[in-house]
Design a protein around this nucleic acid. Structure first.
Lengths: 353, 353
DNA sequence: TTGTATGCGTTATCAG
DNA sequence: CTGATAACGCATACAA
């Protein structure tokens, strides 16, 4: 038995399809009596209301917005920054009774890009930079908003965004370490291109060359890194790609770095979760952050405050909220938003002994 | 300028629409030469591939599955159980390259029910019981899977599920407390119907009557509660609806209960997060779980293990994984799955002094 | 107030 | 290998 449609009902009742449609969507367009009769008959025939997809095709709108992640979704749910952003984003969407679709578009996964192609949504917010996924979405004529600054490679200079000035923030962080007298600094970053060796150690120039060589597939924001490197010029700086943006990866970096003679005096991770993982490694060795090794992160998570971690606070919730508002209101004016950040100095960073 | 369609391309190139369509979906159905010409021309005209919605209408499938929550989504992201379930669910979905839509359908929110109506999805998993939302979805002919046992009021006895035997688990928990000699027990539950007073205290029968009176709008699973009440028959039992399933609510319950003379000797919450919140309240007062008051929860979260909380462990990840598999494979046989649970006794429950 | 024709963009079918 | 036709289910514009 095929699906019951408005046609069927119309035919059986001897009315036009339009009347049936109106019975569901425009009560004012037909007599109350007829309306109830139609509705009753529809129910009796097993019709359960207008088909969602057909209605979307007809109206040209889906009232659904996608959120694109660069990682697997299971990661997104476990990352505090993502979760906080999502919570704010979803609050606004719920208020407008819009639905949310979750899209995982790992860098380099060409097949996953098709998901963007096939997503029946009115717009897409990227919890990531101006990625291929975002660009593809725009090519489809879809509004996009990204919430991390564009990478050098993928930036097409288009698309709306809600970000902080990561470069400036990184410079401030570098300035702090410089003032504190640190001379040997390790920088923990995510993997910057698919296949990059993990836990390797690079001079900044070396690292830069590597990234340049892979610019075509570059996928992670590197503005924080470039700011740090710039601000620490002249010091002994080592860059370590730790693999994933996770506490575990930060911890692994600690294992790599702490059990050697020439320890760094300071370690900066480009996210709080990595920095917190590194602090876990310190604690395991009865080392004290700020005393034995200074540690700093980025993001300003609540967890960072509890741990006494120096960090750059960014308005996560505002990012999520504004991203949603930009998608919901195409008429809105300011569509490229740079939010304020704040360097928060805590006890994890101290003057070098 | 209107949207470019396959028609437009066909017209301009003097070929049939079908050929254009095939160029995108069935490379084998036309000559490579023609295909590349079509593709090039399409690109030149600003055509960006088949429209997602039109394709969905045509094919009758969306390759998207919804997850329905009874709470606001921001809550879902902060609840450890939900997050773990979602992670497992999404891993399976990602593997099949299916998309996930998040739906918030608060109990009693009639408007939100419309979201289920308008969701362009192939199926819906409920991180909740057999709710009105689930029932509505089934009326639409959509496959549903719920992951908490049916409530008494809403159960239509249909729909697939992946659950544990909550009632049996609750009986085991009650048996434990009985053996430990507890005679005065408080039970912390979520709010069982919209508008129910929070932090009130009820005798079990009283509470049951209240719930019965609101059976029409009952929205939360009460199998755990009924199992506990049944298993504790004859003892001095008090039921406290704490409002939401959150650590904060559990903490508030602690504030209510602990600063009085006739403290309970044991407190059971129907979820670990509530129990953990209650333990926070204990700690604040320098009381020791298990010594001053025994505490137990449900779910078996990692956090419960750390806190030494007695609980009922349930296979969260299996629940999520199986729910996804049921949705993805309509042919699969066993569609009503009861997973094993396990009573885990830790130091938060001890013999009464 | 009700009905008619038509299009939304795509793809399956079947004929050439 | 290519093309004409017919749905998919609904709702807008317009006519009655």
């Amino acid at each position: 038995m095929a699906r019951v449609t408005q046609q069927d009902i119309a035919k059986v009742m001897g009315v036009s399809v339009m009347t049936v449609s109106n019975a569901f969507n425009r009560p004012d367009q037909l007599s109350p009596d007829l309306r109830t009769r139609v509705l009753e008959r529809a129910a009796k025939m097993g019709y359960t209301g207008p088909d969602a997809v057909a209605r979307q095709l007809r109206s040209g709108r889906t009232n659904t917005f996608a959120v694109a992640f660069e990682e697997k979704l299971s990661y997104a749910f476990s990352d505090p920054f993502s979760v906080a952003w999502l919570a704010a984003f979803s609050e606004v969407m719920e208020e407008s009774r819009a639905s949310i679709m979750l899209l995982s578009v790992p860098a380099g996964d060409h097949e996953a890009l098709a998901a963007v192609q096939d997503a029946a949504v009115d717009g897409i917010a990227g919890l990531c930079g101006n990625q291929p996924a975002m660009i593809r979405a725009r090519e489809r004529g879809m509004p996009t908003v990204y919430c991390t600054l564009a990478t050098r490679a993928d930036a097409d200079g288009k698309g709306d965004y809600v970000v902080i000035d990561d470069h400036a923030a990184a410079l401030e962080m570098a300035g702090l370490l410089r003032r504190l007298g640190h001379r040997r600094v390790f920088l923990l970053v995510e993997t910057l291109y698919p296949g990059q060796p993990r836990m390797a150690e690079y001079r900044p120039e070396e690292f830069r060359d590597l990234v340049d060589a892979h610019a075509g597939s570059l996928f992670s924001d590197d503005l924080r890194l470039s700011g740090l490197v710039g601000g620490l010029q002249g010091l002994d700086v080592t860059v370590v790609p730790v693999g994933t943006n996770s506490r575990a990866a930060g911890h692994a970096a600690g294992t790599l770095v702490l059990d050697r003679k020439d320890r760094p005096t300071a370690v900066v991770a480009v996210s709080d979760v990595m920095a917190l993982g590194f602090m876990d490694a310190l604690r395991q060795r009865d080392l004290v952050p700020g005393v034995d090794v200074s540690v700093a992160g980025f993001d300003g998570l609540p967890e960072a405050a509890e741990a006494g971690l120096t960090t750059i606070r960014q308005p996560v919730r505002d990012k999520g909220r504004l991203a949603a508002e930009l998608l919901l209101d195409p008429e809105r004016k300011d569509r490229r938003i740079i939010l304020p950040h704040e360097l928060i100095v805590r006890r994890s960073t101290r003057p070098v002994a």
